[in-house]
Design a protein around this nucleic acid. Structure first.
Length: 556
RNA sequence: UGACCGAUGGUGUAACUGGCAACACGUUUGAUUUUGGUUCAAAAGAGUCCUGGUUCGAGUCCAGGUCGGUCAGCCA
């Protein structure tokens, strides 16, 4: 596919190829995916994962998985395992699996080195005082009264911080840069803080922990990362990233920033996702309505579709809002080719074929997947009574409707053409049964009836029907752009109250009772569905991944 | 009256680095079809944020503006 097809380079590939030309990294490409283990991965992370691992593959390089675990108060082992599974599920294998905490000793040494160089100092101010003296983007900050302590005093204090002599919040280590810098991140940023909390990997060894800005670039340096790819909000951190590495005189990777993914009708921030989960708006991190990888997986999205999506959206620096219809296109494309077909009826009406012999059944032959005829056929039981979709019958059809109508004819897919002769209703006027006749010579594959019908509908034979729970999902929000909330409104005001519809007694073919969690299907004419982990032999449960395109529904 | 970044059809990304603005999604139309699916064919839709400059020629270079985003955690 990518063999001799010349695809233009994205801006990161252009930078890499420029580096390769000039020999800055000796032709090496080594990236890393650096999640913080404090939440689940979402499709925005998938963009970053595909980018980082994809670059490594493309340039014959390497990509590490590195947990950015510098804050023990929010991070948990549960998340590192979930992240590992998600990355693997997406289809990537990292070269090295590392943790920022692996490097705490080295990081500490470098902090002492900075102190010895007179480039860092221990500040006794409180967090509030530091905030108050940092200034604003337009007003310079004020230097700390502790800024000019001697190297010896700083070293002593920092070592005692490490030894646990001081309370949390009483002291921090700060870089000594420039309190008047127009870049807020250069105004003596905090490098280390005291946290008397056990860490999921280092236990109680440490009671001081490095800040992101201090740790990240230095970890990149240790691992020999060439291109440290991160999102746009870190752009203003880059001068600090570079400053630390230069002061220390160590190997210098290149940080490159790209625009994070935004998807229409959903939220992507960890904070909001967490709020949806904890507020009970959804049923967990793997709720199929969420853009988390675990949610998408449960919804029936495949790794290949997500990778293809990541490829199609491209990489650039401008803010973007990708239309979900592109994601839906990617999963339909995959499932159309790969999902076996079956028939299910979500909202049934019973059809009785009055001229079909009572007690008779027969097996009709159906394609497993018309996109892959080599997969062959399956046998579907047919009989005198079948269920059809309520939508596939209309008593007073509009122009252009070509399904079943009183006196009208349709084909029951893979079986016979039927004609509706009688409509039976209950006392409320609801249609409860259709009496039809069939044309024996119209059987699929052996049709000598000469009849032509416009419509073909799906069905399930009554005597072979089983029941299932089917969960229909819709977009989680009612507005496309969640970054643009009207004045006085909260983003949660736009949660779609109809994002989940549960059908308790959908009709399926009995053969589907064998379905295993994760199996994907196309329910003919309805959409793609995936067996949910909640499924059981007694009560199969299916999630609708996405509907089929429906040009008729669009016309209505 | 800060610093940094960005601006190309409805959406996203391109434009071989100064040479007829292309591709994908979406939309519309037609053909095929035993899924109103798929497939195939076609169309509409931007003259590249604005103003000026350089040039035979500017989306691309220069100057000035406008609009949008990010940054004031001992979060990442």
């Amino acid at each position: 596919m990518e063999a001799n097809e010349h695809k233009s380079l994205n801006f990161i590939e252009q930078i890499i190829e420029e580096h390769n030309r000039t020999g800055r990294f000796g032709g090496r490409v080594h990236t890393r995916f650096p999640p913080e283990p404090n939440g689940y991965l979402h499709i925005g992370h998938a963009k970053s994962i595909c980018l980082n691992f994809g670059l490594a593959q493309k340039y014959n390089g390497k990509c590490n998985l590195r947990y950015d675990d510098t804050n023990p108060s929010t991070e948990e082992i549960e998340y590192v395992e979930a992240i590992r599974n998600d990355v693997r599920w997406l289809g990537f294998q990292w070269d090295g699996e590392f943790y920022a905490s692996d490097y705490f000793d080295q990081l500490y040494e470098w902090a002492e080195q900075l102190i010895r160089q007179g480039k860092a100092y221990v500040d006794d101010q409180s967090a509030e005082e530091i905030a108050a003296t940092r200034g604003t983007p337009t007003v310079p900050g004020k230097e700390s009264p502790y800024r000019n302590r001697s190297v010896e005093e700083n070293l002593d204090l920092f070592r005692r911080m490490k030894a646990g002599e001081f309370e949390e919040g009483s002291r921090v280590l700060r870089a000594k840069i420039d309190m008047a810098s127009p870049n807020m991140h250069m105004r003596d940023p905090v490098l280390y803080r005291i946290k008397k909390e056990p860490h999921h990997r280092t236990g109680t060894k440490w009671c001081i922990y490095p800040m992101y800005d201090f740790a990240h670039g230095l970890c990149d340096s240790i691992e020999g990362i060439t291109h440290s790819i991160c999102t746009l909000e870190f752009e203003v951190h880059r001068p600090l990233y570079d400053w630390l590495i230069e002061q220390l005189g160590i190997y210098h990777p290149q940080q490159i920033e790209f625009a994070r993914l935004n998807l229409s009708y959903t939220v992507m921030s960890k904070r909001k996702l967490l709020e949806l989960v904890e507020g009970g708006y959804v049923k967990g991190w793997d709720d199929p309505r969420l853009p988390t990888l675990s949610g998408l997986r449960r919804r029936g999205y495949t790794p290949a579709a997500i990778r293809h999506f990541a490829d199609k959206i491209g990489v650039a620096k401008r803010d973007n809002l990708i239309d979900v219809s592109l994601l839906e296109f990617c999963i339909r494309e995959d499932l159309n080719k790969n999902a076996p077909r079956t028939m299910a009826v979500l909202h049934p009406i019973k059809v009785v074929i009055t001229n079909y012999p009572e007690g008779q059944t027969e097996m009709v032959s159906a394609l497993i997947n018309p996109e892959k005829p080599e997969l062959g056929t399956r046998l579907v039981p047919f009989g005198r009574e079948v269920y059809i979709e309520r939508d596939d019958f209309m008593e007073n059809p509009p122009k252009g409707y070509f399904r079943l109508t009183p006196g009208g004819e349709v084909r029951l897919k893979y079986a016979y053409i039927i004609q509706c002769q009688e409509v039976i209703k209950d006392e409320t006027g609801k249609v409860t049964q259709l009496n039809c006749i069939y044309f024996p010579e119209s059987k699929s594959g052996a049709d000598t009836s000469g009849k032509r019908v416009k419509g073909t509908i799906h069905w399930v034979a009554v005597q072979e029907a089983a029941y299932a729970e089917v969960r229909l999902y819709d977009r989680l929000f009612t507005i496309a752009d969640l970054s643009d909330i009207p004045e006085g409104k909260d983003w949660k005001d736009f949660i779609n109250p109809h994002s989940l519809e549960v059908i308790n007694n959908a009709i399926i073919e009995k053969s589907l009772l064998q379905a295993k969690p994760g199996d994907t299907w196309q329910f003919e004419r309805l959409g793609y569905f995936c067996t949910d982990p909640d499924t059981s032999h007694e009560k199969p449960v299916f999630n609708r991944t996405v509907t089929l395109k429906d040009t008729w529904a669009k016309m209505q």
